Simulated scan of single mutants.
Amino acid sequence: MSDPLAAIARFPGVPEAVDEARQAVDRLYRHRVLRRASPAVSTESSLRGARASAAIEGVDVPLDVLRRDEAHDPLVQGALRASAEMGRLGATWRKAPRQVLARLHVVAAAGLTPQEELGRPRAFDEASDPLSLGPAPAAADTAARMEGLLGLLEQPTKAPAIVLAAVVHAELAVLRPFGTADGIVARSAERLTLVEYGLDPKSLVAVEVGHLELAYGDALRAYLSGTPEGVGAWVQHCAAAVSLGVRETTAICEAMQRG
Rank of each mutant, 00 (worst) to 15 (best):
M1V: 14
A6G: 06
I8S: 01
A9M: 01
P12A: 07
P12W: 01
E16C: 05
A17Q: 03
A21E: 11
Q23K: 15
A24K: 09
R27C: 14
R30T: 15
P39N: 11
A40I: 07
V41L: 09
S42K: 02
E44D: 13
S45M: 04
A50E: 01
V61F: 04
V65K: 12
L66G: 11
P74N: 14
P74E: 15
G78N: 06
A79N: 11
G87M: 03
A91S: 05
K95H: 05
P97H: 04
R98C: 02
V100Q: 01
V100W: 00
V106A: 04
A108I: 00
A108N: 03
A109S: 15
A109L: 00
G111R: 03
E116D: 15
E117N: 11
R120E: 14
R122A: 13
A127K: 10
S128L: 15
G134Q: 08
P135F: 12
P135D: 15
A138Y: 01
A138M: 05
A140I: 03
A143C: 07
G148N: 14
L150M: 11
L152Q: 09
L152I: 10
P160C: 08
I162S: 08
I162P: 01
V163T: 14
H169C: 07
L172Q: 08
V174K: 04
V174N: 04
L175R: 04
L175G: 10
F178A: 14
T180K: 10
D182R: 05
D182G: 13
G183N: 14
V185C: 09
V185I: 06
V185E: 03
A189V: 04
E190A: 10
R191M: 06
T193Y: 03
L194K: 03
P201H: 12
L204G: 08
A206N: 08
H211F: 04
L212F: 13
L224D: 12
G230M: 14
G230L: 10
A241S: 05
V242H: 02
G245R: 02
V246R: 02
A255F: 08
